[in-house]
Every structure is written in C-alpha cells, then in structure tokens.
Amino acid sequence: MAYSEKVVDHFNNPRNVGSFKKEEDGVGTGIVGAPECGDVMKLQIKVQNDTIVDAKFKTFGCGSAIASSSLATEWLKGKTVDEAGKIKNTDIVQELNLPPVKIHCSVLAEDAIKAALADYKKKEDGKETVK
C-alpha cells in the first residue's frame, strides 16, 4: 500500500508540531489513542474570543495518524469553536486519500479535536462558576 502524496507531505513536513501549557488560559487539550494500533495523539487548541487562534499536536504513531493530526491542526486555525466541532473524519479521509485500513487514523484525529474542544469548554465553564 502506498501513501498518497499529501500524506507523505504532512509526514515529512508536519505542521504545528509542539504543545501549549495545559493550564494556560484558553487552551484545550485532547489526548486520545487507537487500541487497534497503539497510536497516541495529543491535540491542543488555543482559543481567543471563541476563535481558535492556534493549534498544536504531537502524535506517536504511523504516517497516516501523523498526517491526519497535522491536517487537523491546519484546519482548526481560524475556525470558531462551533465550526471546529463540525470537522468530520470523512473530510480528512477525502483530503488525504486514506485507504480503508487507515480510516481509524482519521477517526483518531476527529476524536482528538472533540476531546480538545470538550476540555476547552470544561475549563471555560469552570471559570464562570468561580466568578
């Protein structure tokens, strides 16, 4: 099985690798894993005024998982929190031309986005109750 050019590109030049401090204001962190292959993915968003101003990821896994999370961070930047929640794994599959055996990598990226958003919302809600 050959990887598509886009996967290879994201794999060789991953965008937005790194991390933010978890405790930092406006940062949402999602850490997820795929038991099928043992891949682990961390995806973080930084939100200001309901817009994602920056996103970072760290993925420990195969080329498709790295490419999926790299692409996800690119897409997240500039989106509002609501828009980000609408990113579907099928969009990633299409963009990267993932073969059927690698679809779970895109599912992992979608789960990571959801987890990061949920973490961000939880932190925000927590703040309001403190006030």
């Binding site: 850490i31 997820v32 682990v40 961390k42 420990f60």
Partner: peptide, 16 residues
C-alpha cells in the same frame, strides 16, 4: 467501550 487510559497516554507522550 472503554474509558481511554488518559494516564497511560500522558506517560507515553512524555516518554516520547
């Protein structure tokens, strides 16, 4: 469906 092992993930990432 299992609870994802968040602690284990953290550990793996820091090892990475």
């Amino acid at each position: 469906r299992n609870q994802p092992p968040a602690d284990l993930f953290e550990e793996i990432l820091s090892l990475q």
